[in-house]
Computed example of a mutant assay.
Amino acid sequence: MFITKISRLCNIPRNISLITQRKINNLPHQLPLTTRLLNPCIGSVISWNKQDCNSVTIKVNYSSNITQESPPLDAATFENICEETLDHLTEYFEELVELEPNLKDADISYSSGVLTVSLGDSGTYVINKQSPNKQIWLSSPTSGPKRFDFDTKQQYWVYSHTGVSLHALLQEELPKIFTSVKDIDFSRCCYSKL
């Protein structure tokens, strides 16, 4: 009951950062006097102070890394942007593998919108387009699965839950695998933002 009431507070625009305070009546008596929990919708902290047996004041700090909504892509534009993005990533991964002597068994393949980067003991990255959702999906052996939307205003792929770009995530993870390669720079790829 209490969590349901909190979840209604989560429907806010993405570009807002605010603190709000609400009083909710008729809460269960077993709540502690002061309690904190993570808000699952955007990870902000919710705290409440029990004032009496029937009501409590809630403080919610909302924030988001996404600055504004991006206009939708049409199907043809999405396909072209995906193709360019995946082609550039394929070329850059091939270049990195050639420069890394510790990854002789690495394999890079790109076909039908799916880029597979097998890095031996370091795991396999799969980056693929999802045309129905107009997204690029990443499966990373380090950070797990992510779904990236294209920001048409800023021209890059962004994970909407954190605001991190596809290329920035790769830039963060891959130097730990390509240890012999100096100056890994995914900003060289098209539609990147670090």
Rank of each mutant, 00 (worst) to 15 (best):
Y159V: 01
Y159T: 02
Y159P: 05
Y159K: 06
S160L: 15
S160N: 13
S160D: 08
S160Y: 07
H161G: 03
T162Y: 12
T162H: 07
T162N: 13
G163E: 14
G163C: 11
G163S: 12
G163Y: 12
G163F: 14
G163P: 10
V164C: 12
S165K: 11
S165E: 10
S165F: 10
S165C: 08
S165G: 13
L166P: 02
L166V: 09
L166H: 05
L166N: 05
L166S: 06
H167A: 10
H167M: 10
H167Y: 00
H167S: 14
H167E: 11
H167D: 12
H167G: 10
H167V: 09
H167L: 10
A168K: 15
L169I: 14
L169T: 12
L169E: 08
L169C: 11
L170W: 07
L170Y: 01
L170M: 02
Q171C: 01
Q171K: 07
Q171T: 03
Q171Y: 05
E172M: 09
E173A: 06
E173F: 07
L174E: 03
L174V: 06
L174N: 04
L174G: 03
L174Q: 01
L174A: 00
L174R: 00
P175D: 04
P175A: 03
P175G: 00
K176I: 05
I177T: 13
F178P: 08
F178D: 03
F178K: 06
T179R: 08
T179A: 02
T179C: 01
T179S: 09
S180L: 00
V181N: 03
V181S: 02
K182V: 03
K182R: 09
K182T: 06
I184A: 01
I184S: 04
I184T: 07
D185S: 08
F186H: 03
S187D: 09
S187N: 07
S187M: 05
R188Q: 14
R188H: 07
R188K: 15
C189R: 01
C190Q: 12
C190V: 14
C190N: 09
Y191K: 04
Y191C: 07
Y191P: 06
Y191N: 12
S192C: 08
S192L: 10
K193N: 15
